[in-house]
Computed example of a mutant assay.
Amino acid sequence: MWKQLWEWLWEHHRGKTAGVAAGIPLGLIYLFFGFWRMLIFVLIVYTGYYIGRRIDRGEPALPILETWRLLLDKWRLFR
């Protein structure tokens, strides 16, 4: 019975089901560790995802040169 319910939910309400499935662990982290620790945890996980996505695309893991050039171009406007 539960398997059929989950299959129906996943088929008809995929986004809502995924959102609730992600929200439950985040809510538990909030309850056990606190809000700020949860935000730091999410930031660390997102950073890992971002770096992994760039590596999968064949891009450098950290765009240091691109960032440096962008900052230099913006600072030249004030000279």
Rank of each mutant, 00 (worst) to 15 (best):
G23L: 01
G48Q: 10
K3L: 09
A61I: 13
L65M: 02
K74F: 03
L26F: 06
T47Q: 07
G48P: 15
E66F: 00
F78S: 04
K74Y: 10
T47L: 14
W68E: 05
L28H: 15
E66M: 00
F35C: 12
V45R: 13
P60Y: 05
Y50E: 03
R14Q: 14
R57H: 04
I29C: 07
T67C: 03
V45D: 06
V20T: 04
I40A: 14
I29T: 14
I44F: 08
M38D: 09
T17Y: 00
G48C: 10
L62G: 02
M1S: 14
A21N: 08
K3D: 11
L70E: 02
A22F: 00
V20P: 01
Y50R: 15
D73M: 02
L62Y: 12
P63F: 09
Q4G: 15
W10I: 03
P63H: 12
V42W: 11
L9F: 07
G27C: 05
R76D: 07
L72T: 02
L62E: 04
L26E: 08
G15W: 06
L43W: 10
V42Q: 10
L5D: 02
I64G: 07
L5M: 11
E59I: 01
F78W: 01
E59Q: 12
Y30K: 07
F33D: 08
L43D: 12
R14P: 15
R57S: 03
W2G: 06
L43M: 05
I55P: 05
L26D: 05
G58A: 06
R14H: 05
Y50W: 04
